[in-house]
Design a binder for these strands. Structure first.
Lengths: 154, 154
DNA sequence: ACCTTTCACATAGCATGCTATGCAATTTGT
DNA sequence: ACAAATTGCATAGCATGCTATGTGAAAGGT
């Protein structure tokens, strides 16, 4: 019985492991920068959509940000608690609750986006424009591969 | 007052946003494959180290996997609860508790690593070997940039 | 020896993400 | 018109990750 198999799994070259590590670091760096604004990463992500399109429903956000409905419901509850959004029942569909930004949330756009750009610069700082584009494109392709769950798995 | 600024933050081209999205998809795909084995993603990550080096301490794992000590403590508690590890107090240092795999955990190595490889293949399926290496290297560089928090920020 | 500092770990509290489930409102099929 | 299916959202329960804090054991300085 061989304890170290012929083809050992090397986590330092595993896309999944590295993706997790990178995402944790991004979240930490972002969080420490937007915490002074009273924001957390998932709230910032949600605001990115609401800053460009106010009055969306929860299911709109679920679709655009590709998170589960329950996750978004909880994030929105915390944002309402923190005075970032208001939820008003849709006039035509009593099930839906449209989401509107408060003045406070609108005011946070610039500093928060700057913080995020800063973190991106920190990650990509050592790369030229070509390398950055290649990395972004590569991640986007990986996302596509992972999304087509049922599709042909090579 | 311009509601849509000249340089809008495009989340679909933001490394941080994409990193988060990719990591969530990786975790989902991995989890659905290793759940039948009774494993969760962070447990698998921890096992990757323990499979190659049994008898580590909690702080060894913290250092190798770059997670916070409290995070690792909780993950190890769940792994102990689930019969994957045993913790025995170090003979020479009464503070440390060395971590040993159970037979059950040892038996899970092959199927779990195969599941992870399958997910990696799913993500990288459309790329040739060069493209895969470039993506892995790019992520590794981003990780380095994000880790040197205090270092020169461009 | 003794006091301070450091180290290894545990715990509390919170945010984010998931699955599973439930409920009420709308839509659909007949 | 009405039963069945679908839709929009809430909640419970859990895993993973963080910061902050506490505790007991070991190490170091005097």
């Amino acid at each position: 019985m061989n304890n170290t198999p012929a083809d050992p799994f090397d986590r330092t070259r595993s896309a999944g492991y590295l993706a997790n590590h990178m995402a944790r670091l991004f979240a930490q760096r972002l969080h420490e920068r937007i915490r002074p604004l009273g924001l957390a990463p998932a709230q910032f992500m949600t605001l990115l959509e609401l800053w460009t399109a106010d009055g969306l429903t929860q299911s709109d956000l679920v679709e655009r940000l590709d998170v589960e409905q329950a996750t978004m419901a909880n994030t929105l509850s915390r944002m309402e608690r923190d005075g970032l959004i208001e939820r008003r029942t849709d006039e035509r569909d009593a099930r839906a609750r449209r989401i509107y930004l408060t003045a406070r949330a609108r005011a946070l756009r610039k500093p928060a986006e700057e913080a995020a750009s800063e973190v991106n610069a920190m990650a990509l700082g050592s790369m030229d424009q070509d390398e950055r584009t290649q990395l972004i494109d590569g991640i986007a392709r990986a996302i596509n591969g992972l999304k087509n769950n049922d599709a042909a798995e090579c």
